[in-house]
Amino acid sequence: MPAPAEIAGLINPGDVTQVENLELLSTRVIDGILSGRHKSKLKGGSAEFAEHRAYTMGDEIRQIDWKVYAKSDRYYIKQYIEQTCLQTLVVLDASGSMKFGLNAPPKFAYARALAVCLTRLVLRQSDAAGLAVVDDDLRAYIPPRSTPNHFQSLLSELKSASPQGETSLADNLQKVLRRMKRRGLIVLLSDCFDDVEHLAKVFQMIRTRGHDVILFHIMAPEELTFEFSGWSRFRCLEQLGMKLDLDPAFVRKEYLANVQTFLKQLKQRCGELGCDYVPMPTDRNLGEALAHYLKRRAARVKVQ
């Protein structure tokens, strides 16, 4: 696992420390070959014996427990409990809107730091971590791996990513979904400046496939307060040439109402679909926010 110095350019070391000892647990038990900390429902060859079952035509001969045959003169096969790797795919929104940041770190930088934290956490707990960078297209896709060197690949991709282009979150999530062969956890780091209903449909598709979804909703504090004054020109970070000349104070009320509606709608849809909605304003300490969330999530998962 790369030392904190190698990721210092991407993340505050203090934030790393705060989440170092925490785990990112999936709320679902993943079937398949067990390795790492997640128990799979798949019963296959592994170190831990689970139970015997009568031999039926088609079972593999090598699975027959000969000791039991010797004692009972009947054919039985052994079943074992497998521990599977958590397939975590971090989807990083690199659209133009993520470039915004005034008095707090730009949303993309914040999201990228969060991606670093999360992927490091996943790999540290021997789960598989992957990365998808999206804007108006699936710009980069690194399938989840659990090898120690995989973090370097992720870091490298994160370093090279920069926000640009328009948001096409829902469509790109679908593309990502098609690449996810095994059930896992999709962590979306985005401001979600896309159509909420379209996004919700995709979330539903993801959930139907058996994946977990965590949405880290990243927004700048200025986008939540809109405390601008004076005649201003607002230039769109995604569409080139789009601009609005206005007096912010005059539109503040309606703007905030629109944002409030958006947040409420997004949160409500996430809740309905069983997705975790984690608000991450960029003026909030990343480590504290993530730690707070992970603790809450861990507590919730263990209860189940």
Partner: peptide, 28 residues
């Protein structure tokens, strides 16, 4: 002079601003 001294802001959340500004801008 007020119009000339306008600030330029690169903004990401245009989808919330555009609808609000259409009517309010005319009013303003």
């Amino acid at each position: 002079l007020n119009r000339r001294q306008q600030k330029v802001l690169n903004w990401g959340a245009m989808q919330f601003l555009a609808p609000a500004s259409t009517r309010r801008r005319r009013l303003w």
